[in-house]
C-alpha cells in the first residue's frame, strides 16, 4: 500500500459516462429518475438549440438542489432572452428558494438584465419591484444610481423605497441627496424611511450632513 499513479486506461472508476451525448438525449435525461443523470444533462445541454426552454420546464418541477443549481448555472451560461424571461417568471413564484436562486442568477447576467430592469422596476407587483432592486445591488451598470433615484422619487410602495434607500446608502453619490430628502417628506410618518434616509445621507456625505 502507499502512493499509486495510474494510467488513464487503469482508471475504470473514473470513466466517462455511458449516456447518449446529443441534444435529444440530454432532453430525455433531464427526466431521468436519477438526479445525477439529470444534473449532467442540465450541464451538457447548454449548447443545444432551445436549451433555455427545456431547462426552465424542468426547473418548474425539479426538487433536487444539485439539479436546480446546475440548471441555474446553465441558464446563466446561455443568458439568452428566453433564459432571462424565464428567470423573471421565477421571481413571481411562491417558492422562496426558487426566487432567491433566480435573483442570484440574474445578478450574473448584467447585460441581459439591464435591458429589462426598468420594466421590472415598474412591475405591478411590489415584491417583484423589491427583487429588481435586490438585483441592482450586484449589477455593474453605470445607470444603477439613476434607476434607484427614479424608484425613490416615483414608487408608491414604502418597502420598495426602503430597499432602494438601503442600496443608495451603499452606492449613492451627491446626485441622490435631493431625492432622498424628498422621500423623507413623502413618507414623513414612516420611521424606518426617516432612519434609512438619514443613514444614507450620512454615508454619502461622510457624516458632513446635518439634519435640516
Amino acid at each position: 500500500m502507499g502512493f499509486v499513479k495510474r494510467q488513464k486506461e487503469e482508471r475504470a472508476d473514473v470513466n466517462e459516462r455511458v449516456y447518449e451525448r446529443n441534444c435529444d438525449g440530454f432532453s430525455a435525461q433531464l427526466k431521468d429518475p436519477d438526479p445525477a443523470v439529470r444534473r449532467w444533462a442540465a450541464r451538457d445541454i447548454v449548447e443545444c438549440p432551445g436549451a433555455s426552454t427545456v431547462l426552465l420546464e424542468r426547473l418548474e418541477k425539479e426538487e433536487a438542489i444539485e439539479v436546480r443549481q446546475a440548471i441555474f448555472t446553465s441558464l446563466i451560461n446561455i443568458g439568452d432572452r428566453d433564459a432571462i424571461t424565464g428567470l423573471v417568471e421565477c421571481l413571481r413564484s411562491e417558492d422562496a428558494a426558487l426566487r432567491n436562486e433566480a435573483i442570484e442568477a440574474m445578478k450574473q447576467l448584467p447585460e441581459g438584465v439591464s435591458a429589462i430592469i426598468k420594466e421590472l422596476l415598474k412591475d405591478d407587483d411590489p415584491d417583484v419591484r423589491i427583487f429588481a432592486v435586490n438585483i441592482l445591488e450586484a449589477l455593474s451598470h453605470p445607470d444603477v444610481e439613476e434607476w434607484l433615484i427614479d424608484v425613490i422619487e416615483s414608487d408608491s410602495h414604502v418597502n420598495v423605497c426602503a430597499t432602494a434607500v438601503d442600496l443608495l446608502a451603499e452606492i449613492g453619490t451627491e446626485k441622490s441627496l435631493n431625492s432622498l430628502d424628498k422621500l423623507r417628506t413623502r413618507f414623513s410618518s414612516e420611521p424606518y424611511i426617516q432612519f434609512a434616509v438619514n443613514i444614507a445621507i450620512e454615508r454619502i456625505t461622510n457624516g458632513q450632513y446635518h439634519d435640516k
Binding site: M1, G2, F3, V4, K5, R6
Partner: peptide, 19 residues
C-alpha cells in the same frame, strides 16, 4: 499532503492513495 500522509497517517500502510 504526501509527506503528511507518510509521516502522520498510519492508514498509508493499508490503503492506496492517488494524488
Amino acid at each position: 499532503i504526501a509527506i503528511y500522509l507518510l509521516e502522520y497517517w498510519e492508514g498509508i500502510n493499508h490503503w492506496d492513495v492517488e494524488i
